[in-house]
């Protein structure tokens, strides 16, 4: 596998596909996510064609008459990047069958969506794309809320996070529901590759992008993508927070390939989930509540159980792919 140094040397001379000059916040996880994905795609000889769901990444990289993209790019709407890329990929198949595209040209169809466009409004479109088996890599940059519109609650927002539509108030402790488990939802479709990734584990990230691109079917990468602005952290803490998420079992790194689970990073020692919460301003109000301990304990119990469950799934699904 390629290492970071090689990648740096390679892309010192050629374009990654997304260029400088975009207007994302310093410290935003989204452009790092894009660069990681695009570098691997191009390193492997793919010609990327990207689609974006409406969101931070989209509005900040394509303000007319400028664009930060040096590869073919399409943005259609908020909830339909998966359907749009289904159309792009099908056009490719049709034109290839008619001999209008060189046989040996390797395209990578890559969709980027935030958690709002993926967990919530775009879920149906995503499910349709997965079910129909379009060979598209869907990359979720999960910043756990509608950050483009100013920090509203999404199906991905964790409990206790202070958002404008589920604020931590005098009575309510912010959002009370757990995050939707998007990877399980994706993995429940037949013949898919689904994985989580973290910016703090680039080698694991790269390996998963490679696997996803070479997978014969739809693939999905859920990237933990800090929003420094609304998570209330310094803009140099992106990777640190990502690392904490992995070390506290908040964001376990694993993959599901045709139903076979594999936990790709197993830290020797775990930190309490409270450390992850304490490091971010978005949980500050929660942590100052009298019932904070109860809520934190519940979350701790949840991440522990989920981790145990993942290990069990890894054990029992070993060598038992769905197909």
């Amino acid at each position: 596998p390629v290492n970071i140094k090689q990648l740096a040397q390679e892309f010192d001379k050629k374009e990654i596909g997304i260029t400088q000059g975009h207007r994302l916040c310093p410290g935003c996880g989204a452009p790092i996510t894009v660069k990681f994905v695009m570098m691997i795609a191009r390193h492997l000889g793919y010609e990327p064609v990207v689609g974006l769901a409406t969101g931070c990444l989209e509005v900040s990289t394509s303000i007319y008459p400028y664009t930060a993209w040096s590869v073919p790019y399409i943005h259609n709407a908020f909830e339909n990047v998966a359907a749009t890329m289904s159309g792009v990929e099908t056009a490719y198949k049709a034109l290839k069958n008619k001999g209008k595209i060189p046989e040996d040209k390797k395209y990578a169809f890559i969709a980027f969506g935030g958690d709002g466009g993926t967990y919530d409004i775009g879920l149906q479109s995503l499910s349709g794309m997965l079910e129909r088996g379009h060979k598209v890599l869907y990359v979720l940059y999960d910043n756990e809320g509608y950050m483009n519109t100013g920090n509203q609650r999404s199906g991905s927002t964790p409990p206790g996070s202070d958002t404008t539509t589920a604020p931590v108030g005098k009575k309510l402790p912010g959002k009370v529901q757990l995050k939707k488990n998007i990877v399980e939802i994706v993995a429940a479709h037949e013949n898919v590759y689904a994985a989580t990734a973290s910016l703090s584990e680039p080698m694991d990230f790269f390996a998963k992008v490679e696997k996803a691109l070479n997978f014969d079917g739809p693939s999905f990468l859920a990237v933990f993508s800090p929003c420094v602005r609304f998570w209330r952290v310094n803009d140099d803490k992106t990777v640190e927070i990502s690392k904490l998420a992995v070390e506290t079992k908040y964001w376990p790194l694993y993959e599901v390939e045709r139903g076979v689970y594999r936990v790709t990073r197993k830290p020797r020692q775990f930190k309490p989930v409270e450390e992850f919460l304490k490091a971010q301003g978005r949980f500050r109000k929660l942590l100052s509540r009298p019932d904070a301990k109860e809520i934190v304990d519940e979350l701790q119990e949840y991440v522990d159980r989920r981790w145990e469950r993942l290990l069990t799934l890894e054990e029992v699904t070993k060598d038992k792919p769905i197909r």
Partner: peptide, 10 residues
């Protein structure tokens, strides 16, 4: 959405 993608693709 898919025909928009397909038509934009060419």
């Amino acid at each position: 959405s898919a025909v928009v993608g397909a038509a934009a693709a060419g």
